[in-house]
């Protein structure tokens, strides 16, 4: 099962470019959306990442950043980002393979790929919402936006 609401988000430190790593604590004070997905270049993943690319403005309105995570290598991510014009980081859960995905319960052992799982993490590093989609279904952005809005309302 993927990690559920009110669980502290496990730490990670993964390459987002050939010479730079991002870690969870880099986002303290911000909300973070983690989008685990099976594979760069596959049709559903491409659509999903392209959608988040268009939704960045709305995520930012809620003080949230989004990170894509798959087991593809940093070089593969770089080519995928360039090809799809993505404006948010993709993290390479590459070595040891799938280690971070496993910590979040979002790893498919049979395929050796991340599951299609979403996590919304609050400013203090606590998971506030999570969602697992079948590999073939693009979960869209509605669940994420609903979760961010609920967090806004909770704060008021």
């Amino acid at each position: 099962m993927i990690l559920q609401k009110n669980t502290p988000a496990p730490d990670f430190e993964l390459y987002n470019s050939p010479d730079h790593k991002l870690k969870l604590s880099d986002f303290k004070g911000k909300r973070l959306i983690l989008a685990f997905y099976p594979a760069d270049w596959s049709p559903v993943c491409s659509d999903q990442m392209s959608l988040y690319n268009e939704t960045l403005r709305l995520f930012h309105k809620h003080n949230a950043e989004v990170l894509g995570i798959s087991v593809d290598s940093k070089w593969c991510h770089m080519a995928f980002e360039e090809n799809r014009n993505l404006h948010f980081p993709l993290l390479a859960d590459f070595e040891p393979k799938g280690a971070v995905s496993k910590k979040y319960g979002a790893y498919n052992e049979q395929e050796g790929e991340s599951l299609r799982a979403l996590f919304v993490i609050d400013e203090k590093g606590i998971i506030q919402w999570s969602h697992l989609s079948p590999d073939s279904v693009n979960p869209g952005a509605d669940g994420i936006l609903d979760a961010l809005e609920a967090m806004d309302n909770h704060k008021k």
């Binding site: 659509d47 999903q48 959608l51 939704t55 693009n138 979960p139 869209g140 509605d142 609903d146």
Partner: peptide, 11 residues
């Protein structure tokens, strides 16, 4: 666009 996203439009 935002209304679409909120209604689950993903393509």
């Amino acid at each position: 666009f935002e209304g679409g996203l909120r209604s689950g439009v993903n393509g």
